[in-house]
Amino acid sequence: MHLRILTVYTVLIACLVAALAVPFARSYSSHRTGQLLLERRADATRLAELADQAIRDGYTTGLVQEVSRYHRLYGTAVEIRGRDGERVAGGGAWEREPAERALSGRTTGSLPLVTPFGPGSVVIAEPVGRDAQVSGVVLMRVATATARREVAFVWAAVAGGSLIAVACALIAARRLARWILRPVTELDLTTRAIAEGRMDARVRDGGHGPAELRLLERRFNAMADAVSTALERQRAFVADASHELRTP
């Protein structure tokens, strides 16, 4: 019974901790992913404005220099392509699906969820121009190493806190089980002593355990006292009868 109480209590606490920890960990991953998107999409929007002006003017030298400078500064690959797919500046960031979405006039609205296990990089695409005047696309291949490290740190903290909570729950469960079962243990020891012939054995009322089980202890002691008194009277009666029969 001790093991069953311990197991049930610990499993319930572990499920409760998991129900809180897992959504929190995923929520932080989603938050960090969204933060990464917002940070880089602002840069992509600025480059798209520069690219739109450069493509309309037919002068892309300044755009190429700006893309190179951005790549040196942030280590992020940037690629700008025109409406027909020709490369205008940069390179190393091409990915068909986000590019086609941006050429249809839609910006990147979401990224794959960043976790400690990946992805290693994500692509953000921003249309150059707007609506029917889309003249190209800006693609940015953003490394997620920093974001993954931050997510890993938070996940490790959540996992460590969860393990500590489960360990504390296990300790509390052991104490709770002992507290509940202490009257039962005392009853078992006392009944064993009475069965071995020690009729004066009684349950010690230490004030431990649920009130219902302590009440059961008191009633058991009262029953044992009544049985002991009845046996004493029986012995006395038998002794008197034996004496009367020997000396009529």
Rank of each mutant, 00 (worst) to 15 (best):
R148D: 05
G62E: 12
E86N: 06
E100M: 10
T33D: 02
R192K: 09
V166Y: 02
P210I: 03
P248C: 01
L73F: 15
D84M: 03
P210N: 12
E232W: 03
M199P: 07
R106S: 15
R204T: 12
H31G: 05
L215A: 15
T7D: 10
R87L: 11
Y59T: 06
A145I: 15
E49L: 13
V134K: 03
P112D: 04
D188H: 12
A157Q: 09
A226W: 13
R41F: 07
Y74C: 08
A14S: 08
V64Y: 02
R174T: 08
V22Q: 03
V123E: 02
A222N: 12
A222K: 13
Y9S: 10
L16G: 13
F237I: 03
A226Y: 06
L187C: 08
A152D: 06
T10L: 14
L189I: 13
E212Q: 13
F237K: 06
A222H: 12
R233S: 06
E79K: 04
V67Q: 00
V22H: 05
E150K: 10
D57Y: 10
P98H: 05
G109E: 08
G207R: 07
L103E: 01
A226K: 13
V158T: 01
R214N: 10
A147T: 09
V184T: 14
H2W: 13
T229D: 09
V64K: 09
H71Q: 15
S29W: 00
L113G: 01
